[in-house]
Design a protein around this nucleic acid. Structure first.
Lengths: 218, 218
DNA sequence: ACTCACTTCTGAACGCGTTCAAAAAGGGGA
DNA sequence: TCCCCTTTTTGAACGCGTTCAGAAGTGAGT
């Protein structure tokens, strides 16, 4: 019966994610997860090849929630600034319960071998899904983003989001208030900065930045 | 005899760093370091409270080498572009032997609790030393950097360097050729970008970026 | 030479993530 | 019902980073 198997797997994931939130990464040992879920350690490894795989499970879930929440929040928002702001705050909302876990997550994800690593390998599903959230924010906006930037903007914003997430990890202010301030302050600047792309001098440098970015990828 | 103690400590550090270079982070176990150095595991822990402390030892050494090599390379270079380029390449030169170790280093350093973390705590010695290297590159340049940016530029460049280092970690091209290309391509763009700061529209946005950056720190 | 305080060193032990041979449970065909 | 193959589950074992009680060494004072 495949259903029973899937049920065990899901139960393990649920227990693990709850423990990550409630007692943190280090205290959530594989033995503790297994005990709490009522199975043996070996059985936990039958479903998740490593502790990192459980972290990936969390990543996938957080990302799906972010996509759903952002999609909902974008309803009725037209200009890029509002849309970007809503998307970023949605991300912070979803991550919030895991703040104490953030540093361990980053340390796990940043390894080139990690399935969660957003920089390694162009074709990872995780990265594409995350990029898609920002693509949605850009594509639906009016007035539209400058033509020249439209193709690269989602990736650029996503990169900025990675930076914001890193800032968030180190943000010890209550409720990560400073990160919220950063988002609210940075979004209008980005929106205004995009308008500068039309200034000839800026436009030229921008061209070169984009062409460098492309030539580096090969 | 304090000299004998210092000698043991130094010997352990030398052995550990060599093993990091030659066989990587994971295979360099505390037991292996101790065995290779001819002491007991417990004794290694008498000198270094954790494996991370040995990573810090490496960080300090790499940074000192970077500072020395950059200082030497700056001799006679006037314009900011050349100086920045020399500084960045000096950093890559020093890191090169540790490339295979890079990912583990980043994963270690990025933890808020790590003594090596460059983002945590404003006053870490490691961060100040690293910033100093870029301050030297900016301060000695002629023509000088725009007044408005002069105070923040070293920190900004240092942040860029962190980004380049991250790129370098994931750069699997032989000799990390792509990272070299990135540096050579990005430096002139940065130099030209700085000139744009004089354009009124850009200047205004720049003001706001700087003021946001300051307001966020509190 | 002997004591005493301090530094240096040892190796067994702990809990962790992970592996694996083998046991148990399930289920389709006779 | 019994057999046989696959899926699922078990728990002991391994190597790791780290800890710690205690042994060994060192040197100044007597």
């Amino acid at each position: 019966m495949a259903a029973k198997s899937e049920q065990t797997r899901q139960h393990l994931a649920d227990v693990a994610l709850r423990m990550f939130r409630e007692i943190g990464f280090e205290k959530t040992t594989m033995r503790a997860i297994a005990a709490e879920a009522g199975v043996s350690v070996g059985n936990a490894y039958y479903y998740f090849a490593s502790k990192d795989d459980l972290v990936q499970e969390l990543y996938v879930q957080v990302q799906a929630e972010h996509a759903a929440k952002a999609d909902e929040a974008l309803e009725g928002l037209k200009d890029l600034g509002s849309r970007l702001r809503a998307t970023l705050h949605a991300g912070l909302d979803v991550m919030a319960p895991y703040h104490r876990f953030g540093a361990d997550f980053v340390a796990t994800a940043i390894r080139p071998t990690s399935p969660v690593n957003p920089f390694a390998g162009e074709s990872t599903a995780a990265r594409e899904a995350s990029l898609g959230i920002f693509r949605a924010a850009v594509e639906g906006s009016s007035p539209p983003a400058p033509k020249k930037l439209r193709a690269d903007l989602p990736e650029l914003l996503w990169l900025g989001y990675m930076g914001i997430a890193l800032f968030w990890v180190y943000d010890t202010s209550e409720g990560q208030r400073r990160t919220r301030k950063l988002v609210d302050g940075a979004v209008p600047l980005i929106a205004r900065g995009l308008l500068l792309a039309k200034i000839p001098g800026v436009n030229k440098v921008l061209d070169d930045v984009l062409s460098l970015s492309r030539s580096i990828r090969n």
